[in-house]
Write a protein that binds this DNA or RNA. Structure first.
Lengths: 150, 150
DNA sequence: TCACGCAGTGGGAAAAAGTGGGAAAAAATG
DNA sequence: CATTTTTTCCCACTTTTTCCCACTGCGTGA
């Protein structure tokens, strides 16, 4: 499981070093093959290849005539890019993906279970402050949440 | 079960000595592996690794397209950091987490059953005074609270 | 009252991780 | 097919992190 906030930096060539604590797990799981795609919140998602493939299958199977489904397919499958971890534990984030997420030099890699989210530092901070102050009364909670005891 | 208020101090490198009375229990439960994450009230939560993993599993399973669920995932899983107790019974609290909780030198470790809360001393005192004077009439209690006998 | 021991604290050195640059290989273009 | 540009791979340097050791202060017991 991936978790936690990790400061990462992108160099002039768009290379990003993955935090060492995850590297062994990534090697085991997918021999360094990862897939990067986009999220509607203007961050990037980074999956180990096998995990991505499973999601991709689910997405492809969705009903093609459903608008929501096509939107998801186009966004997620359409932007999915396979990358390999190099000898220094770095991956190459393409210019298009960096631009999409507003990524400059300083990024944050956020562990989210089976995947990472990759945010521009500034965007993340803004969004996070929003989530913290946001009033959540009146919103519909999934029933799983109602009974959650942390 | 963890309970009680414990004064703790953080050194320049962010290291914090855990109170001795809990160390054996922490060794038994998780061999010194703890997870620190954030709370909406701007304090930190400290879980023994197995307790955290159970919560994490529940969080990860929540539906990805639900806004509330993603918010919780990003805040809690996204900030969760695994730490190890060192030979001197200390754990390392990262700069980001310290900053989040406004933690400087003096902190309070509050036992809360299966976890601890870690507060900056000043914030805790202010918040506690607030809870004591807060007027809760007119608020609707969940049914579990209605029948609570203390 | 003095000595011993343990918990707490700080600092420093060794190791590991991160970063940048350059050269070689590959690809693209005319 | 040759030249130019892009990409990839490798090496070396710098910074950060981690681990270990030593000192201090307080409490306890002789």
């Amino acid at each position: 499981m991936f978790r936690g906030v990790n400061k990462v930096s992108l160099d002039a060539k768009g290379r990003m070093a993955l935090p060492t604590r995850y590297r062994d797990r990534i090697q085991d799981r997918c021999h360094g093959s990862l897939v990067i795609t986009v999220d509607r919140d203007y961050c990037l998602l980074v999956y180990p290849l096998p995990d991505w493939e499973e999601i991709e299958r689910k997405l492809i199977r969705l009903p093609s005539l459903n608008k929501q489904a096509r939107r998801l397919q186009r966004l997620m499958v359409g932007h999915a890019t396979e990358v390999e971890m190099d000898n220094n534990g770095r991956i190459l984030v393409s210019g298009e993906l960096r631009e999409f997420a507003g990524l400059d030099r300083k990024g944050l890699l956020i562990g989210q279970g089976n995947k990472f989210e990759l945010w521009d530092e500034t965007s993340w901070n803004e969004r996070r402050d929003g989530w913290l102050t946001e009033d959540d009364t009146g919103q519909d909670l999934p029933s799983e949440l109602e009974s959650l005891s942390l």
